[in-house]
Design a protein around this nucleic acid. Structure first.
Length: 272
DNA sequence: AGTGCGACCCGAACGC
DNA sequence: TGCGTTCGGGTCGCAC
């Protein structure tokens, strides 16, 4: 499940490999993945080059001359670089062919990922990007900002932190970690979060995401890692995927519950 | 406006 | 070489 730290890692690794090479062809093998008109998509991209790769929340933003190609990996999206003549695998859905006979391949077992082409001058109307909230590490991400957003919300705080329009980039793994580090019970009603707790959410998310990026993100599900990059932050997770194991702080057992349908791990003793 | 839920997918896990 | 069913997970769109 790529979240902000994994997407940032993909961005950094891809930048070293695909910039400034002409794209001579593109194959789309699963067209539902492309939200733009398919013919326009191909026409615009062929002949262009990736000048840069940016990121907003969990969205990758490829700079293609007059356009941006935005790409969301959802749960299982991965990018690989392979030679042109290498066999196309079952779950490779979009293949960019470069002039030097290398290819960039988008691989997605669940087919949940999405790509969309946006004219640069229309970026201000791009709802997917514009509605993203503040990211961990942003100096404007403060307890005060969060309390404003939390007003009137009766959902569990866990659910609210998955809302990308409030904090952008957190997913199921890092929300559990942030709540643990902040000593907040995932089921606590959002509008009952105090200023001190909101400040702690900001502080914890800054630290956790910074560290997760430092370690290349978290590799939990996949055997084959994206781009040959294996993150190692899974070794530092305090609660996520640690059901029945000892809490590193108090030695009580980590519990797993469902919060609005999402698997949620927490320490009942540290997070009252 | 805030909330809940089905849809989108398919490999893995589960039940028998 | 067992087979059919359920689950999970980020986001959207729609109903309430």
């Amino acid at each position: 499940m790529p979240e902000i730290a994994e997407v940032e890692t993909v961005r950094n690794v891809l930048k070293k490999q695909i910039l400034n090479k002409e794209i001579v062809d593109i194959k789309v093998l699963y067209s539902n993945m492309i939200e733009s008109d398919l013919n326009e998509f191909k026409q615009v991209i062929i002949g262009k080059t990736f000048n840069d790769i940016l990121r907003r929340g969990k969205w990758l933003i490829f700079d293609l001359d007059g356009y941006y190609l935005i790409s969301h990996l959802r749960m299982e999206g991965k990018y690989f670089i392979k030679p042109l003549n290498e066999k196309i695998e079952k779950h490779e859905h979009v293949i960019f062919e470069f002039i030097d006979n290398s290819t960039l391949r988008y691989h997605d077992t669940r087919k949940f990922g999405r790509m969309k082409l946006i004219k640069k001058e229309k970026m201000n109307d791009c709802i997917e990007i514009q509605k993203q909230g503040l990211e961990p590490g942003d100096k404007n991400l403060t307890g005060k900002y969060l309390l404003e957003k939390f007003k009137g919300k009766r959902l569990p705080i866990k659910t609210t932190l998955l809302d990308q329009t409030i904090i952008s980039g957190l997913g199921n793994i890092y929300v559990d970690e942030v709540l643990f580090k902040s000593n907040i019970n995932p089921l606590k009603e959002t509008n009952k979060i105090t200023l001190e707790e909101a400040n702690n959410i900001c502080k914890s998310s800054n630290i956790i995401i910074k560290n997760a990026i430092k370690y290349g993100g978290t590799t939990i599900r996949s055997y084959t890692s994206s781009l040959g990059v294996k993150g190692s932050y899974q070794n530092y997770l305090q609660v996520h995927k640690r059901e029945n194991q000892e809490c590193n702080i108090c030695k009580n057992k980590i519990k797993r519950i469902k919060v609005n349908g999402r698997s949620t791990y927490y320490c009942p003793n540290c997070q009252k």
